[in-house]
Amino acid sequence: MTAPRYDLLCIGNAIVDVIADTDDAFLAEQSLDKGSMRLIDEAEAVRLYDLIGPAREVSGGSAGNTAAGAAALGIRTAFVGQVATDQLGTIYRHDIEAQGVAFPVAARGDVGATARCLVLVTPDAQRTMNTFLGAAQQLDAKDIDLAAIADSAIVYLEGYLWDPPGPRAAMEAAIDAARAAGRKVAFTLSDSFCIARHRDDFLRLIDQGRIDILFANEAEICELSGQSDFDAAVADTAAKVVTLVVTRSEQGAVAVRGGQKASVAAEPIERLVDTTGAGDLFAAGFLAGEAKGLSLDLSLRLGAIAAAEVIQHYGARPEADLRTLAGALL
């Protein structure tokens, strides 16, 4: 097998995070529940955007965050997601490429507007999120560069993107191309609500042996397995995949591969600020370790380091130098 062009290729929702300061009065005027997340349509996204003050616009989305974290660790990384031929689509491409992530997907003019999450931050640090999924949900199988998939050591898929039929078909095609090329397929369950909607599909992928590395948190692994006991849920699922990785917030994480089980404690932090992106960055660290051929224990440690960095500031992208934090691990 030839050496891959990318160590990691991530597929997911291409969402621009629009982060703006606001106050409680504005939230009350707009009938927004502080700290909540709601899905909105394009008209509401435009209306709110026109009302907010100066904002910081950053490429986001779960798999996009993982791609950015892996690139920060020195991993050759690509991201596949759909944006439109509009201002935010241009911003998304510029931002993610500036972080060292290849973005081999053309913007399209027939997919509506680029997805965005309007994140309103009040003085008490609460984040109220308003998400318009737009073009991100229009990724099509024909837009997937199957040669790039086959040229990636690990292909990582985001469960959030499984809802619409187009992106679902695109991810199924990517899985098939990766497996035909002898590459690894990693999948994150993303959210318990995703599992509630697509449990049969996710179990089908697992039972067919199409997933090599499965990521979940404690609630998700119990939801998927139907087991209320954590250890039973892990044992049940680990028997069906090559590698299972389960995060447990402040209790660290565990991974199982064959007969080997490893665990890692959560990294010590100075102050918990924002848990957004913790799972995404944990996956980035673990997958970077896999790409580098590290042991299960060291890959878990790298994931814990990346997750600890991102929860000590606002936003889901690393601000400190992850390669410095990783030290001798890399």
Rank of each mutant, 00 (worst) to 15 (best):
A239F: 03
V242F: 01
V242L: 06
V242P: 01
T243D: 13
V245K: 06
S249Q: 11
Q251H: 13
Q251F: 03
G252H: 07
A253H: 05
V254C: 15
A255V: 08
A255H: 03
R257M: 11
R257F: 00
R257P: 00
G258S: 05
G258Q: 10
Q260F: 00
Q260I: 09
Q260G: 01
S263P: 01
V264H: 11
V264E: 15
E270K: 08
E270I: 07
E270C: 02
R271I: 09
L272Q: 06
D274V: 06
D274F: 02
G277V: 07
G279C: 09
G279A: 11
G279T: 09
D280I: 05
L281A: 06
F282P: 01
A283T: 08
A283E: 10
A283Q: 12
A284N: 06
G285L: 09
L287Y: 05
L287M: 14
L287V: 12
E290Y: 01
A291I: 06
K292F: 04
G293K: 07
G293Q: 10
S295K: 05
L296W: 03
L296P: 03
L298V: 07
L298R: 15
S299Q: 05
S299A: 15
L302Y: 00
L302Q: 04
A304R: 02
A306E: 06
E309L: 06
I311G: 07
Q312P: 04
H313M: 07
Y314S: 07
A316T: 08
A316H: 04
R317M: 11
